[in-house]
Amino acid sequence: MGYDDEFLVAGEALLARPGFWSNHLLGTGGEGSSTALPVPEWFGDDGADADALSEVLLDPERWPVFRVPTEDGPGVVVVYRNMVGEYGIDYLLTRPGRSSVQRIGGGDGGLAGSGLPWDELVRIADTPARTAEGVQDTAARLLLILPLLAEPEVPAAAIGRLSADLMAVGAPPDTVSDTAEHLLIRLTKGSRHDPTWRSPLSGG
């Protein structure tokens, strides 16, 4: 994909740092949502935590990489592409037995690729490759790849699953449903749906 290995660093240890999830998810979704703008406290963070970790995540000399491998089938690698003047978060689809990867999302606050439907995000999150390096926790896995959601409607159970996963990483129980709803509204409203669209996982 043209990355300079000199800058790539394993990022999994950052998931447990205060401020990570607000940095990763605050900008999730499309524009035009009528809901209130999110704040770090929605994720159990505070502004100081978020600011401090932002400096780590956006360091132009260290590009955090988060691996989400699966036991069977395609997985995802999330790369914080901290190139000066061309910052973005790239989402790369990996396939077992292949060295090449497919960029399915990335850019500055929106998907440049096709994204994935909710059910496929859940499948990837719930089938970690136990013997591979990368993120094993299913809640963290779903939240890492959540910005890939590209579907105008999600199952009714999605808000419950997302709420549970947000609580698992420290979101306050009294506001977690609102946070989950906000994220899903922004993602589904920002989805560029084409009735003929096929998921990258189906070969489309």
Score class of each variant (00 low, 15 high):
residue 1 M to D: 11
residue 1 M to Q: 13
residue 4 D to V: 04
residue 15 L to K: 07
residue 15 L to T: 08
residue 17 R to F: 11
residue 18 P to E: 06
residue 18 P to F: 06
residue 27 G to F: 09
residue 32 G to P: 04
residue 34 S to E: 10
residue 41 E to V: 09
residue 42 W to P: 07
residue 49 D to W: 06
residue 56 V to P: 05
residue 58 L to E: 12
residue 59 D to G: 02
residue 60 P to V: 01
residue 63 W to H: 11
residue 68 V to I: 13
residue 70 T to M: 07
residue 75 G to N: 01
residue 76 V to W: 00
residue 79 V to F: 09
residue 85 G to H: 05
residue 85 G to V: 00
residue 89 I to Q: 06
residue 89 I to E: 01
residue 90 D to F: 00
residue 92 L to Q: 00
residue 93 L to K: 08
residue 95 R to L: 11
residue 103 R to H: 11
residue 104 I to E: 01
residue 106 G to N: 04
residue 107 G to I: 04
residue 111 L to D: 09
residue 114 S to N: 13
residue 118 W to T: 00
residue 120 E to P: 04
residue 123 R to C: 04
residue 123 R to W: 15
residue 124 I to G: 01
residue 127 T to Q: 14
residue 127 T to W: 05
residue 129 A to H: 12
residue 133 E to T: 15
residue 136 Q to I: 00
residue 138 T to V: 15
residue 139 A to I: 01
residue 140 A to H: 01
residue 145 I to V: 11
residue 147 P to E: 01
residue 148 L to T: 06
residue 149 L to K: 09
residue 150 A to G: 12
residue 151 E to Y: 05
residue 162 L to K: 06
residue 167 M to V: 13
residue 169 V to M: 07
residue 175 T to Y: 06
residue 177 S to N: 15
residue 179 T to Y: 02
residue 182 H to A: 13
residue 188 T to W: 01
residue 190 G to V: 03
residue 197 W to P: 07
residue 197 W to F: 12
residue 199 S to Y: 10
residue 203 G to F: 03
residue 203 G to I: 07
